[in-house]
């Protein structure tokens, strides 16, 4: 084959054009473009927020679609084409240095986001996200509006739930620390309220719990557990002061199950997120043990009711 200019130019353009027709033009013609059941139009403010998101390269670390193989993403909706209807650009992202955000709306409170944008480590101590304080309040607000809209109608439902409980939480907080704690405990299912920590508060367990506390809790609840972490000034209601819990033991003896339940499920309406996606059972019990021993000064771990001791538990280490 002789590569004459005619063959060369004609062929190059022709093959390229054929590819374009198959890979680009044909999808334009054939793809149905309809909103999905969770889709809703974005407000002006949310659109502004999307611009902030795009301009500042948030998409280099955050993806915008949940896959079939994904774990650990709160509202587990596998992405559908209609979710992105009219979004310009539907910025899917190619990297997950941070979590996927496609269903982030309503997962956290606005307060939480504000603290998080000012310094991501305020709410997530291990985060490698840069601080966005320099954007200024206005831009951060727009960005927050956009993030809270992710998930469409589903996000709106989550936001509504956040607002409903936020109102009650604020009322409870205003009524004073003790009634606040009574209110918080009243929202925990019965079985959990009367459950001791089934893990013995061994040295190993407590130090593991401390490790986890530093990676998840410290910047809200503070290094001494008094609720004065670095994020506290941004959060309303503020983080709980654990040292008050000593006088709120259930039946004068139980606290482990309460701590476990709150860590696991969070307190919707406040900035306390759920941790059941990040942490599994033993890790949460270890944190409860650490909080109980270190900040409350009392632990119900390994007390009755309990069944047969697990085979590894030693008699000596029991409190």
């Amino acid at each position: 084959m002789k590569m004459t200019p005619k063959i060369f130019f004609g062929g190059s353009i022709l093959v390229w054009a054929a590819s374009i027709s198959i890979m680009v033009i044909f999808p334009v013609i054939s793809m149905k473009n309809k909103p999905s059941e969770i889709w809703r139009p974005m407000t002006e403010k949310e659109k502004e927020g999307l611009k902030v998101y795009v301009n500042n390269g948030c998409s280099y670390c955050h993806s915008m679609y949940i896959r079939k193989v994904d774990w650990g993403i709160g509202a587990e909706r596998i992405a559908r084409p209609g979710d992105y209807y009219g979004q310009e650009p539907a910025i899917l992202g190619s990297e997950r240095t941070g979590p996927d955000l496609s269903q982030e709306g309503g997962e956290h409170t606005d307060d939480w986001h504000k603290a998080h944008f000012i310094n991501p480590r305020f709410t997530r101590p291990m985060s490698v996200m840069p601080s966005w304080e320099f954007l200024g309040e206005d831009e951060i607000e727009k960005l927050t509006a956009y993030i809270q809209s992710l998930g469409g109608k589903d996000a709106d439902l989550r936001i509504a739930r956040q607002k409903y409980w936020h109102k009650q939480a604020i009322e409870a907080y205003k009524a004073g620390p003790d009634s606040n704690i009574r209110w918080l405990h009243s929202k925990i299912p019965d079985g959990w309220r009367k459950m001791p920590n089934p893990y013995p508060a061994t040295e190993a367990s407590v130090s593991r719990g401390k490790n986890m506390y530093m990676k998840f809790c410290i910047n809200c609840h503070g290094p001494v557990g008094d609720g004065n972490g670095r994020a506290a000034p941004y959060l309303n209601p503020p983080p709980l002061n654990f040292t008050l819990l000593r006088r709120h033991l259930e039946d004068d003896k139980y606290i482990g199950g309460i701590l476990y339940y709150q860590i696991m499920n969070g307190i919707t309406g406040t900035s306390m997120p759920y941790f059941k996606k990040d942490l599994e059972s033993e890790k949460i019990w270890d944190i409860s043990n650490f909080i109980a021993k270190e900040f409350i000064g009392y632990t119900d771990s390994d007390t009755e009711p309990k069944g047969i001791d697990a085979s590894y538990e030693s008699e000596k280490e029991k409190e």
């Binding site: 084409p81 979710d83 899917l92």
Partner: peptide, 9 residues
């Protein structure tokens, strides 16, 4: 960009 998921293509 185009609106919607088509843009990713």
């Amino acid at each position: 960009a185009l609106p919607g998921i088509l843009d990713s293509i």
